[in-house]
Design a binder for these strands. Structure first.
Length: 284
DNA sequence: CTATGGCCCTGGTTGC
DNA sequence: TGCAACCAGGGCCATA
């Protein structure tokens, strides 16, 4: 599923095709993709506007418009952005199509309709609830160590919480926890300082490597805007490898559910830690 | 603050 | 073989 590396790749690849272009026409084929606006309202807000820049924040592709508003694109499960010749008629799963002033169009495809293509007047405000970027300067070892210590949730749900840290999804969390030898169900405040450091490094290394490989493709959904699959799935150590030997120790990879998410661990490498039991009161 | 569960969706997989 | 039930999955919302 598209997570930070896939969204980053998408943003980078569409940027040269849409930055500086003007939107000359908007078509919407599934209204709920707009996340609240009616088709009429959305068309009014976007048609004629110039796209001044493309960025990524968390798992959003942000298309900045000339009037300081923006389009927030969230790929969710199955969304994709494509650059198409304007003449081409939208394929079966296209939910939104923006015609550009250079005879190309930006298509938002989304089989499962979970994705969003939303216009917001104040992008900074709309994104303000998100946690730090894992590859940004605010995400330091010290920040992570302290942030983990100040919470009590299980590690995996916490790392998936976009208001805690922005951009990780199910795949890269499983990979990072395995790399750092941490158990997804360990309470975050039981993570030692050295482990926090290892987790910090694992997250950054994995995300950077995945971006270098243009993300991960394994279920027929994610492709770059150029139609190419990513390559990072070949580097998975635990995700989707239930029953296979752990690449580090050979112990079979286990799969179970944590916080309603399929979760992959090596039970030998990743030992669950728990909070010290309340000491029983010595009685008389 | 944390945990749980439902909802949104569809195509692919599983079970009978 | 055919068909229905089931499942994955990110974010959001309601509830406890």
């Amino acid at each position: 599923m598209p997570e930070l590396p896939e969204v980053e790749t998408t943003a980078r690849l569409i940027e040269p095709h849409v930055s500086g272009r003007r939107i000359t026409g908007t078509r919407v084929f599934w209204e709920r993709t707009l996340g609240g606006d009616s088709i009429r309202t959305f068309r009014r807000k976007t048609t004629g506007k110039q796209i001044t820049g493309v960025r990524r924040r968390a798992k959003y592709v942000v298309l900045h418009l000339e009037d300081e508003s923006a389009l927030l694109v969230h790929l969710r499960m199955s969304g994709r952005l494509l650059i198409e010749p304007d003449a081409s008629k939208p394929g079966p799963y296209v939910r939104v199509a923006l015609r550009m002033d250079d005879d190309h169009a930006l298509h938002f495809l989304d089989v499962r309709k979970f994705g969003r293509f939303t216009h917001v007047g104040d992008p900074a405000g709309a994104l303000a609830h998100l946690g730090p970027e894992p590859l940004g300067s605010a995400f330091t070892v010290a920040w992570l160590r302290d942030a983990l210590r100040n919470r009590t949730r299980m590690l995996k749900p916490l790392l998936l919480d976009q208001t805690f840290l922005a951009g990780l999804g199910n795949i890269y969390v499983d990979e990072a926890l395995h790399r750092a030898r941490l158990h997804p169900e360990s309470p975050s405040d039981t993570v030692s300082a050295p482990k926090a450091k290892a987790l910090h490094r694992a997250i950054r290394d994995i995300l950077r490597a995945a971006i270098r490989r243009q993300g991960s493709s394994f279920d027929g959904f994610y492709r770059t805007p150029e139609g190419q699959p990513g390559d990072y799935q070949h580097e998975f150590r635990v995700y989707g490898r239930a029953g296979e030997p752990c690449p580090r120790c050979g112990h079979p990879i286990a799969k179970f559910v944590v916080g309603q998410r399929g979760t992959h661990v090596c039970r030998r490498c990743q030992r669950r830690t728990s909070r010290p039991r309340r000491r029983a009161r010595p009685r008389a």
